[in-house]
Structures are given as structure tokens and as C-alpha cells.
Amino acid sequence: MQDIVHNLDVIHQRMKNACLQSGRPEDAVRLLLATKTVSEENLRFAVGQGEVLLGENRVQDGSRMAEKIKDLPVEWHFIGHLQTNKIKEVLRWATCIQSVDRTDLVEKLDQRLQFEQRKTDVFVQVNTSYEPSKFGVEPEKALDLIREVMRYDTLNLKGLMTIGLFSAEAERVRKCFQVLAGIRNQALELGFEHLELSMGMSGDLEIAIEEGATIIRVGTAIFGPRVYPDSFYWNEGSVKPTGNSS
């Protein structure tokens, strides 16, 4: 458990330093814990350290863990590729879906939410690296998808999400985050007062924060390596993207 304490301290210090160097308030960025394969014990411990924002990539795993720790005051986001046949299940525990990336998903979400007579928060996921192995709407089509989301009263657009290019070349990674920030700026002209940017992980969080991230997603750098590669946990039955997912 002391490893988790140490790792959380390291990540939060990196976040703080990046905010200060960018001229942003220290509390401008939230940490989302990527919970893939994390045990209930470790997750409860992390929540006990003050972490309340959790993100899961797989619907079934999220359902199980959300039930196990339903006594804790946490906020669950879904951050993986969402198949339309899993919408009903994910809405049982996730208060926000960060991976809305196509029109048919928007339509099916609306249908289910209308049936349940409620709303939910969503992020539009953008494939800013243009990698065919990654999910997300193409940057050129992002505003059209945002406008589509805006058509539905059941969907509350809270922000945009992307996975940066997994590269040692910092400026190539930075470009991904700049693209997302640019789309956000265009979207604000549609009438939004504020839109969050969910971008940046353990390997590139400083760059993401410099470019305006408000949420960073970190998993293995806090809880340790997983049994399977990240690609195994990213989605349920679709194309497996490459690169760093937390």
C-alpha cells in the first residue's frame, strides 16, 4: 500500500509542477484513476487517500467493481470503446461516458436515456493522432459530432477526450493535444461556457497540462503493471488500439 501512496504523491507533484510552470492554478487538473484490473482492496485504499474520480475501460469490469464499492463516494467515468449493446449496462454505474465517437452511439444513448427519463454527461472522443488502431472521431468531423450531441436533451456535453500519440517525440505528442484544444475552442463558439479536456497519461501528462488538460488518466503508474497488455482492457470485442492507455 505504501507504493500506492508514493506513486500518488509522485503523480500529484508532477501535476502541480506542470500547472505552476504553465501558469495555471494547482487545482486546474483532476486525476482520474484508470481502474483496469485494480483490486477492490487497492481501489478502496486509493479512495481513502482522497481519490474520487475513477475510470473503467470495460463495461462488465466496471459493473462488478462499482457494485463492490458502492458504499464509497466516488464518480465513475467510462473511458473505453462502447458498443451499443452495452449501453444499458454502463448507464447503471457510469455518470459520464468519455468515449462518444460516432452518430449511432449518440442515437442509441438518447433512446435509452429517454426510456429511463434521465440525462447523462458525455465527452466526445477524438482520434487526434489519426491512427487507424485507435477509436475516436476524426478531428475534421469532430464539430459535426458535437453538433449532433447538442441535438439531444438527454446528453450533456462536458468535454472532449483523446489519447495522445505514444511516442518519444514530445512535439508529435503535443500536436495531438493542441488539435483537441483547438477543437474545444471552436466548440465553445457554439455556445458552451466551458468544456473539459481529458487528455494526458503518465508518460505525457506534463505536455497535456501545458496544452490545457483538465483531466489526466493514470493507472499503471499508480497501481503497478497489469497481467495483460493495455490493449486487452481497452475494449470489448472490437479493434484493439495500440499505444499507452494510462
Score class of each variant (00 low, 15 high):
D3T: 15
L8T: 04
V10P: 04
K16T: 15
L20P: 12
Q21R: 15
P25N: 06
P25A: 01
A28T: 10
L31Q: 10
L33M: 14
L43Q: 06
G62F: 02
M65N: 01
I69K: 06
D71C: 12
L72A: 03
P73T: 09
E75K: 09
E75I: 03
E89L: 15
C96A: 13
Q98A: 07
T103L: 14
K108H: 15
Q114H: 13
D121A: 10
V126D: 00
Y130S: 10
Y130M: 07
E131V: 07
P132K: 02
P132N: 08
F135D: 02
P139N: 05
E140T: 12
L145Q: 00
L145G: 00
L145E: 01
E148H: 11
D153W: 06
L157T: 03
K158H: 13
A170N: 14
V179H: 00
A181T: 11
A181M: 12
I183M: 00
L188S: 08
L190T: 02
L190N: 15
F192A: 02
E193S: 12
L195E: 03
S198Q: 09
G203Y: 05
I207S: 04
I209T: 05
A213Q: 04
T214Q: 02
T214C: 05
R226C: 07
V227S: 13
S231K: 09
F232Y: 15
Y233T: 02
G237S: 05
